[in-house]
């Protein structure tokens, strides 16, 4: 290991160190640079998987950005988790669909007020052969038949707005889930898409919002069996996270987003969103 046999050694060491330092500085610089470039006008919206995965936000946000210059960062979660994100102050706006939970959120002081924006509807999806003979327009009668036949049913089981609605329909159908629950009733504890993947794999019945269903591609042998029951309407509300609880909430930018959603142009943009010619969300803001 003498210098005469390995004359390049000191230079080699320096070159190695230099290249390491360059790589390290480079990555650190990009890391530091990232938040800086993204520091423009933006708000964070905690919303549901149904609005994100149906492609509604992909349609709305560029239009809002054009009108206002504000970027909207959407974190798509179940309604329960989205409200919790707002409660912790990690979002400026909550845009979800579980009226009871939303009203509690506002009553507890975490939100300023709840404003109705639009509705979509749920559909009961199941195997085309319909082993429980559940097809029709009456959601509670259909669920009763599924329970009586002990036909495979997939539940979200994740405290989402869709899960809360499903539990309400079981109750209205007079099915005591705690008693009736058996191997046929499968709680996946996952989002709408993963639950649909499970239902498609097991050829099971499942309650889903129409938007996610229309944009869902892995349908297998499933088809819509129950739709059109007015009880299946699903109201969306938007709430500004209370700035007096969380001082960092960007209330001016966030209020602009909420105002735009219920404005004529926002409501029209919602109505204009279609998949395969079918309208997914129906604006119904009270102006």
């Amino acid at each position: 290991m003498t210098s005469s046999t390995r004359p390049t050694q000191p230079y080699a060491r320096r070159a190695w160190l230099a290249s390491l330092v360059i790589v390290w500085l480079g990555t650190t610089a990009t890391l530091v640079g990232m938040p800086a470039t993204a520091q423009d006008k933006f708000i964070t919206v905690a919303s549901t998987t149904s609005t994100e995965q149906s492609g509604l936000f992909g349609h709305l946000l560029p239009l809002f950005k054009k009108d206002s210059g504000i970027d909207v960062r959407v974190v798509a979660l179940g309604t329960g988790q989205a409200l919790d994100t707002g409660r912790r102050g990690d979002a400026d706006v909550v845009f979800v669909h579980d009226k009871v939970a939303e009203e509690k959120f506002v009553a507890d002081g975490f939100g300023v007020s709840r404003i109705e924006v639009m509705y979509n509807d749920f559909v009961l999806v199941g195997p085309k052969g319909d082993p429980a003979a559940a097809a029709g327009r009456d959601i509670t009668a259909a669920l009763k038949k599924v329970a009586d036949a002990k036909a495979a049913f997939v539940s979200r089981g994740d405290k989402s707005g869709t899960h809360a609605a499903e539990l309400r329909y079981w109750k209205a159908a007079g099915v005591e889930l705690d008693v009736a629950k058996g191997p046929w009733y499968r709680e996946t504890g996952s989002g709408m898409g993963p639950a649909l993947n499970t239902a498609s794999g097991m050829n099971a019945y499942i309650l889903t919002d129409r938007g996610t269903w229309l944009s869902f591609k892995n349908r297998g042998d499933l088809a819509v069996l129950v739709e059109g029951d007015t009880r299946l309407f699903n109201q969306y509300g938007v709430i500004l996270v209370n700035p007096s609880k969380h001082a960092h909430v960007k209330k001016d930018l966030a209020q602009k987003f909420i105002d735009w959603l219920v404005s004529a142009s926002g409501q029209k943009a919602i109505a204009d969103y279609k998949i395969g010619g079918e309208q997914l969300f129906f604006p119904n803001a009270k102006r």
Partner: peptide, 24 residues
Amino acid sequence: GGNIDGVTRVMTTAIALETTKGDL
């Protein structure tokens, strides 16, 4: 990260998202 489009969406979260959309 929250899998925010254009801000915190990376390869693995994009794969998870497309799976949930059923676009296998």
